[in-house]
């Protein structure tokens, strides 16, 4: 597989064209904006919690295919997970896009589509924008996220 095909895998193109959970949430518990000033990617991540469980998660905004697909896949993966589980997945994703992951495809599941990102250092911050925003939402940090 060429580097380019590894980056723009079908899963990514699909989530870019048809992002899941792409909506403004009515009455979220928390929401936060993430912004990458370098390329102008800008997303708001909304979360509704039920105890320790992420009952609902959605996002809205604009950006490149990598950032949008990443936000979309993140939502599908995290809905119904606990805060602790979400943080484990965050770490797994973070290591993957930085090329530090030793997990196999089965372990990674849907995240595997992002394995090509590590070959494109300039695009790592696109992939992690929504994830960092989500993490700050979970940790109830007030400041918006910037990944330049």
């Amino acid at each position: 597989m060429s580097d380019l095909k590894a980056l723009y895998q079908e899963v990514i193109l699909d989530h870019n064209r048809n992002p899941r959970n792409y909506r403004k949430m009515e009455n979220p518990d928390r929401f936060l904006e993430g912004y990458n000033p370098l390329c102008g990617d800008r997303y708001t991540v909304y979360i509704k919690m039920k105890g320790e469980v992420i009952e609902d998660i959605s996002f809205q905004g604009s950006g490149c295919a990598i950032s949008k697909a990443s936000a979309s896949v993140m939502g599908s993966l995290l809905k119904g997970k606990t805060r602790a589980e979400a943080e484990v997945i965050f770490d797994q994703f973070h290591r993957l896009v930085r090329g530090e992951s030793k997990a196999d495809a089965e372990e990674l599941g849907k995240l595997a589509a992002f394995s090509g990102v590590s070959e494109f250092p300039a695009r790592v911050k696109c992939a992690i924008l929504a994830w960092h925003t989500m993490k700050n939402v979970l940790e109830d940090k007030a400041e918006s996220v910037s990944t330049e």
């Binding site: 980056l7 950006g63 490149c64 990598i66 696109c126």
Partner: peptide, 22 residues
């Protein structure tokens, strides 16, 4: 339907250097 940043990355693979962003 295609963000400039994606255009830039794909063109780069073709040896073409352009600028994308604001």
């Amino acid at each position: 339907g295609i963000h400039p940043h994606d255009i830039g990355t794909i063109l780069d693979q073709e040896g073409i250097a352009i600028r994308t962003g604001h």
